[in-house]
């Protein structure tokens, strides 16, 4: 299925920050938000939204979900510009979009089935809870109360609610949080299936390494602005991060400057017995030259795209500065709540 699912044109929204004054206790001033966003989402496309804490990811998702109004700009849904004459813009968005917020802590004595039915009333959509729960792998817990669910099961329930009414656009905020690796993989497969059926998906995730190879397009957001927007390959090229190889070997470090021709040495490290280097735009003969010079190569591979590196490059900041730390397992996000979020 093709066609434009959603378009944002110069969309701006700023949070109002309370600054009470003696003369006006309700005084607010514009705070952080998102500024002049232009974005196109095609049907069936999977977009990854990445940015540091407080960059505006959640705000952007809430705007798209019709929770927050826009201050300026236009929104086109399936090619048609949303017009307030046809009803509130946020409501028109809500009718077409499924939203799964980050870490919903479902609690209470209501059962999973009852919760699904309650939300079907809010969506004005008749739903078959069994079918929906089967889709997210929660069938066996349909009669369990919300208090009995684990965090992973709560994530699945959030996903089930987002899928109600078969939305054409799905917004997923940290969908893999709390899921075990197998469950995360099954959610990933389900997202791909939905994408094949024409559902456009935006995923905001801190588990950035998991997004590579899974998303069609990447949005890098920083301080409320899109700093990069395109396929991972395009962004790599634009940011000068493409065509890099990593070479590792034993023994002395080769004289790389002579052996790699027109390539650029980005990084080289040496310890007692091994060496490694990263070279960009290396000649085809580079490896051959190193081997012919008598060096022992143990590893040679294309450097995999690194979204964190892209973000650093796009923002001109160091990893520590932007505060996005990626753990080795890539399973547990580090999260700090900013004022905005």
């Amino acid at each position: 299925m093709t066609g434009r699912a959603l378009e944002l044109i110069d969309v701006t929204f700023r949070h109002r920050i309370s600054r009470p004054k003696f003369t006006n206790p309700w005084f607010t001033k514009p705070g952080p938000g998102v500024f002049g966003l232009n974005l196109t989402l095609e049907a069936g496309q999977i977009i990854g939204l990445v940015g540091p804490n407080g960059a505006g990811k959640t705000t952007l998702l809430r705007i798209l979900a019709g929770i927050m109004p826009i201050d300026e700009g236009k929104i086109r849904l399936q090619g048609v510009e949303l017009d307030p004459k046809n009803g509130p813009i946020d409501r028109q968005l809500r009718a077409n979009i499924g939203h799964m917020p980050e870490q919903v802590r479902w609690t209470g004595s209501a059962s999973v089935n009852q919760t699904i039915r309650q939300f079907s009333a809010l969506r004005d959509t008749p739903v078959a809870p069994e079918k929906l729960l089967k889709l997210v792998g929660l069938s066996s817990k349909s009669t369990a109360t919300l208090d009995e669910l684990s965090q992973g099961m709560r994530q699945r329930l959030s996903l089930a609610v987002a899928l109600m009414g078969a939305p054409r656009i799905l917004l997923l905020d940290e969908p893999f949080n709390g899921l075990d690796p197998v469950a995360a993989k099954s959610v990933e497969q389900m997202i791909k299936q939905l994408s094949n059926q024409g559902v456009a998906v935006i995923i905001s995730s801190h588990q950035v390494s998991g997004l590579v190879g899974f998303i069609d397009k990447l949005l890098l957001i920083h301080r409320g602005q899109l700093v990069a927007n395109g396929s991972i390959k395009d962004i790599e090229e634009k940011l000068g991060l493409a065509d890099r190889i990593e070479i590792g070997g034993k023994g002395e470090l080769p004289d790389l400057a002579k052996l790699i021709g027109s390539g650029t040495i980005l990084e080289q490290t040496v310890d007692e017995q091994n060496w490694s280097c990263t070279i960009q735009h290396a000649d085809d003969a580079s490896i051959k030259n190193i081997v012919q010079a008598g060096h022992h190569i143990t590893e040679w591979k294309r450097k995999a795209p690194d979204i964190v590196e892209m973000l650093c490059q796009a923002t001109g900041l160091e990893v520590e500065e932007i505060g996005l730390e990626v753990q080795a397992s890539n399973m547990m996000p580090l999260k700090t709540l900013s004022e905005e979020e």
């Binding site: 809500r94 939203h99 917020p101 969506r123």
Partner: peptide, 9 residues
């Protein structure tokens, strides 16, 4: 947030 993202006015 889930409730507010539903189409019901």
């Amino acid at each position: 947030e889930v409730k507010l993202s539903q189409p019901m006015p």
